[in-house]
């Protein structure tokens, strides 16, 4: 009779073992996702390339010197001023822009979505407006990122405004939704198309110059 009873394994300590492992993983786990400011580096150019000529009014010159002082268009400023100045510069729309291939333009047209002052001394068109960021070798990286962040914030502000006017959704939300993905392919396609248009209307043009 005793043989027929299979001996029961005591599973009382199972929970304890599992708890121990659980606590170990709880403590060691790091669920942080890396995040940061994304930029695309320019491609490597051949030595004897014709340098493109950019009019001075289309260049927004930002210089950070070795003492982390900020000089914008030859005047002293603080980091918090960068965003506002950059917005005013990019959004100026004082002339005709480069023809945009995305909209089948053969000739440059005026910026119809800009809300800037149309100052003839400032930029012509968002797609001509170049932000030139000049740094010294000993500029601190923290300062450099702060300025990059402010410039990025200026573009985000303008793109958000345009997206709100045209589509009723902010650009940030559109990008977020695209990242999450949707089940409907038609909606997704429309979203990607809209993001592309917004990006073409306010392209991020940042030229980095490093002096030694």
């Amino acid at each position: 009779m005793a043989r027929r009873d299979s001996p029961e394994i005591n599973a009382g300590s199972m929970a304890d073992i599992a708890f121990l492992l659980l606590i170990f993983f709880l403590v060691t786990t790091t669920m942080d996702v890396d995040a940061g400011i994304s930029r695309k580096l320019p491609e490597k150019q051949p030595e004897n390339i014709d340098k493109p000529i950019v009019k001075e009014r289309n260049v927004f010159e930002v210089i950070i010197n070795r003492n982390d002082d900020l000089l914008i268009e030859n005047e002293y400023y603080e980091v918090k001023d960068v965003k506002e100045l950059a917005i005013a510069f990019i959004d100026n729309g004082g002339g005709k822009g480069n023809p945009m291939t995305a909209f089948n333009e053969t000739e440059g047209a005026e910026c119809s979505w800009c809300g800037g002052a149309k100052n003839p001394k400032s930029s012509d068109h968002p797609n001509k407006a170049v932000i030139s960021l000049k740094t010294d070798r000993s500029t601190s990286y923290g300062m450099y990122i702060e300025v990059q962040n402010e410039i990025g914030a200026a573009y985000t502000f303008l793109r958000n405004r345009l997206a709100m006017d045209d589509y009723g959704v902010s650009y940030t939300d559109m990008v977020e939704q695209e990242g999450r993905g949707t089940s409907d392919p038609a909606t997704m396609l429309k979203l990607t198309e809209r993001i592309k248009i917004i990006k073409a209307k306010y392209p991020e043009i940042i030229a980095e110059i490093s002096s030694n």
Binding site: G36, T135, R137, Y141
Partner: peptide, 16 residues
């Protein structure tokens, strides 16, 4: 993507 994890105090020259 290359993720550059730079210290605040490091200099831009190295990053460049």
């Amino acid at each position: 993507t290359t993720l550059i994890k730079g210290d605040k105090e490091s200099s831009v020259g190295t990053i460049n």
